[in-house]
Design a protein around this nucleic acid. Structure first.
Lengths: 246, 246
DNA sequence: GGAGCCTGTGTCAAATTCGCGACGCTTTTC
DNA sequence: GAAAAGCGTCGCGAATTTGACACAGGCTCC
């Protein structure tokens, strides 16, 4: 077993990485191998910019390891808005492939990140020839639209404490493998590893760094959350959910 | 000529209505007729709710006449957030068809509106069998995501005057048949018919009705816009674009 | 191994922005 | 002709941003 290294084994690793991605999860073996042949690996250092908003783009990136944040850079100086972060099994950069327009946002590696790159010609061919991939793509795009709609909703209706609480609940739900839409139906104690700085969190909920600091302190004071090392503990998710009421 | 009424003529009208929609624009005649057979007409009175957020949904609506607003209802009382409005040639309600989840927003007819309804089974079949429709669908979804991303960006970075100015510019760009992304590169005088109330405008940019009123007055005072009957005149779009700077 | 130096955090007071409630007035709708 | 919908306007007060500064920990470069 330990001897099974080299091209055959790494081909297996690639297949495994693809299976972890919704786009390829339901695809049959033969097609999967075809896809694998169309992909090229690409690694990024921590903090490296993968592409920048406004650039032309003709490639989609499938994350097999690490994490990427999708941000909207502010014109200068101030903190960028963080639209979402993408981990293993996720992909990004599909928009420019679909409509040929420039990148709508900036992608930056949060950690050392391994990706596989799919270029437009191969992508177009796969979308046409692989119904399973096509369906997965459509479902993912629909999910993207729902996520953004929810974000707009939050920014419209919720004040800062509400947005913070809802963000925590959604992150929780995702970590639990549940639908983020059900975030405020969670109950009981949850734990959440905490890789973000307060400034980044501010960028996610549309607030200043200082406000986030104060709000977190408030939550701790009310006993709604608690820090345990580098984990965030939510003793009772349903109580936190009450804080999101308009 | 006047005698050419009845099923043949209305079939022609249906075809014409479909051609106006991106989904069917590039489709060949035979396929178009197949689609036409799968559609059922449905009309809505002004102010009628077409579907409500949270409802299950398995139909897509193609607008052939009138206008529909897609909104996120506030829990109660206050003004809903208006995500977008859709006119002839547009369609809505596709999300629930793609992922089977409940309606993410509410659709309300702004005017007396004529639509054609496409149910899931027919939709699925068309997506699989009609590459032209499929491509148009993907492009439209990508555009939707770009629009929402831009909306999140505005809510993050811009204050109220900025959001109002940008909204006007985008509406202008769309009326001109240009890409809304280029909104702040417009120059010269533009006119914009004005079917919205101040409360609705407030719902679009995330503001209170009173603020919108004051901001509009400010813009008029600065000479950036002017009212001419029920039209809004922007003497110099580039000057208005300056007001969107962060 | 210490002197910087950068990043991330905690905290304040001042200034601002914006929502909210409250009117009164005009225009449309029934 | 009444009722409802939309508009113009104020002032207060709450929510947030801004800018500033102090402090801790970790990193690099002598």
């Amino acid at each position: 077993m330990a001897g099974m290294v080299g091209s055959a084994a790494s081909g297996g690793a690639l297949r495994e990485a693809l299976r972890a991605c919704r786009l390829f999860a339901d695809m049959d073996e033969a097609s999967l191998d075809m896809c694998a042949a169309a992909l090229r690996p690409r690694r990024f250092r921590k903090g490296e910019t993968i592409f920048h908003a406004g650039d032309p783009g003709d490639a989609l990136f499938i994350v097999s390891d690490g994490a990427v944040k999708i941000t909207i850079p502010s014109d200068e100086g101030s903190e960028p808005a963080i639209l979402t972060t993408i981990g293993p099994g996720g992909f990004f950069g599909e928009l420019s492939l679909l409509d040929g327009a420039p990148r709508s946002a900036t992608a930056v590696a949060l950690d050392p990140t391994a990706t596989h790159v799919l270029r437009r010609d191969a992508f177009d061919a796969l979308v046409d020839s692989e119904p399973a991939l096509r369906r997965a793509l459509l479902v993912t795009l629909a999910g993207e639209i729902r996520r953004l709609t929810a974000q707009v909703e939050d920014l419209h209706f919720l004040d800062l404490p509400g947005r913070l609480a809802r963000h925590l609940l959604r992150t929780l739900a995702i970590g639990d493998g549940r639908d983020p839409a059900e975030a405020d139906t969670l109950v009981g104690e949850h734990r959440l590893s905490w890789p973000y700085t307060q400034a980044e969190l501010a960028g996610m909920i549309g607030a200043s760094r200082q406000s986030v600091n104060r709000l977190l302190a408030d939550l701790v004071a009310e006993g709604l959350v608690r820090f345990d090392g580098d984990e965030l503990v939510i003793p009772d998710a349903s109580r936190l959910a009450l804080a999101t009421r308009r």
